[in-house]
Design a protein around this nucleic acid. Structure first.
Ligand SMILES: [Zn+2]
Ligand SMILES: [Zn+2]
Ligand SMILES: [Zn+2]
Ligand SMILES: [Zn+2]
Lengths: 136, 136
DNA sequence: ATAAACTCTATAGCAACTATAGAGTCAATC
DNA sequence: GATTGACTCTATAGTTGCTATAGAGTTTAT
């Protein structure tokens, strides 16, 4: 059994993050030592690494909670997992599109200014001030 | 002079958002009526539209505050504006790259499961559980 | 006995809002 | 003139996934 500091080192999650996950019910309340310190075993390490892996894929804590629940009910079908992943992928792709469009607009705006002008003639500020044209 | 509700309608910013911008010093404290209602003129409309335009480009409130300050000091050079825009564009591009990579990983993961399996054999959950391989 | 290193709980902060509660204002109707 | 309804006011809490802090207790070493 290890204390929270060691679990933190082993998994690369900060101590506060681990406590945060406990509060959010992503990991079970740990056993406690006589002095009220949290005690963890190998299963906790694995679960925390699972969570970390999910977070690196930008899955939300509620999504991870759902995956963990499915993981615990082995009779369940994969459909739920797949639906969630599809939705998540959709959102990531939508965000990429948004940002790509944004990037184009920023590029155009940036090109409207050359250095060594004073702000009065600044194309950037002028374009920002202009009433936004119809988006066509 | 108009009250906050009309300013909200004209600009498409919510009433709370307008009050929030005031608290954050993006717009000046408005004049008040006898009954303590905020009163706005056309200049307020324009400034709010400027802010809205900046927000649609994902500029942060501090960045917008800086642009507004530059806008008010006409002798200033464009360099500051440009530096900020370049940095902002950099960050947007970095985020796009991150998300694109993420999207690839999610796609691979998603393909590791076909429907109508039970969770025990689920490729997604198994891959999430596996200790993350070196990223090569 | 004392210090260092660790842990505990509870709370506040981040970003840019959104939502709510409880109270006050204003114009119109009965 | 009392009441309704629409509007506004301030202050506060919630969103997301943490991070940082304060103040106290525990453990280990000297
Ligand atoms: Zn998601
Ligand atoms: Zn310029
Ligand atoms: Zn920025
Ligand atoms: Zn599956």
């Amino acid at each position: 059994m290890m204390k929270i500091g060691e679990l933190s080192k082993v998994t690369g999650c900060s101590v506060q993050t681990i406590r945060h996950y406990e509060k959010e019910h992503l990991i079970a309340s740990a056993e406690r030592s006589e002095g009220n310190f949290r005690l963890y075993d190998e299963a906790a390490v694995e679960q925390l690494l699972f969570i970390k892996q999910c977070r690196s894929l930008d899955l939300s804590l509620p999504e991870i909670r759902q995956l963990l629940a499915l993981n615990r009910s082995p009779g369940a079908q994969c459909d739920d997992v797949n639906r969630m992943m599809d939705k998540h992928i959709e959102q990531v792709e939508a965000r990429i599109q948004e940002l790509t469009k944004l990037n184009e607009q920023l590029g155009m705006l940036r090109r409207s200014c050359s250095n060594r002008r004073t702000v009065e003639q600044c194309g950037i500020l002028r374009n920002l001030s202009a009433t936004p044209a119809s988006s066509g």
